[in-house]
Computed example of a mutant assay.
Amino acid sequence: MKIFSDSFSNLEKGLDYSALKQKVIANNIANADTPNYKSKDVSFKEIFDETKANELTAHRTDSRHFSFHSSASHPAIMTNRNLSFNQNGNSVDVDKEMADLATNQIYYNALADRISGKFTSLSNIIKGGR
Results as ranks from 00 to 15, higher is better:
129 G>N: 14
24 V>E: 07
72 A>C: 01
29 I>Y: 03
116 S>H: 14
5 S>I: 06
67 S>R: 06
31 N>F: 10
67 S>T: 07
28 N>I: 06
23 K>S: 10
56 L>Y: 09
62 D>Y: 03
109 N>I: 06
47 I>Y: 01
60 R>E: 01
95 D>F: 00
85 F>P: 02
83 L>P: 01
98 M>F: 09
41 D>F: 01
102 A>Q: 02
90 N>T: 09
115 I>Y: 08
98 M>E: 01
113 D>W: 13
71 S>H: 02
129 G>S: 07
84 S>C: 14
96 K>D: 05
96 K>H: 14
107 Y>R: 10
121 S>I: 13
115 I>D: 07
67 S>N: 12
87 Q>W: 09
86 N>Q: 11
81 R>E: 03
98 M>C: 13
33 D>S: 14
88 N>P: 12
123 S>I: 13
18 S>L: 12
17 Y>R: 14
43 S>W: 01
109 N>W: 11
123 S>V: 12
122 L>K: 15
125 I>K: 13
65 H>G: 02
115 I>P: 11
68 F>Y: 04
49 D>T: 01
92 V>N: 10
129 G>E: 05
37 Y>N: 03
32 A>P: 03
93 D>L: 03
29 I>W: 08
55 E>C: 00
26 A>N: 15
121 S>Q: 12
46 E>F: 07
125 I>W: 01
7 S>A: 09
60 R>T: 02
1 M>Q: 05
52 K>R: 15
100 D>C: 09
106 I>W: 08
73 S>D: 00
87 Q>E: 06
97 E>F: 01
18 S>D: 10
26 A>T: 13
3 I>K: 07
36 N>A: 05
13 K>R: 15
101 L>Y: 14
31 N>E: 02
77 I>D: 02
74 H>T: 00
32 A>R: 00
91 S>V: 08
82 N>A: 02
36 N>R: 14
31 N>C: 01
8 F>A: 14
99 A>F: 11
117 G>H: 13
15 L>T: 12
36 N>T: 09
12 E>T: 15
66 F>R: 11
23 K>Y: 07
77 I>N: 00
29 I>D: 10
31 N>V: 11
75 P>N: 00
11 L>G: 15
57 T>S: 08
11 L>A: 13
95 D>L: 11
40 K>D: 01
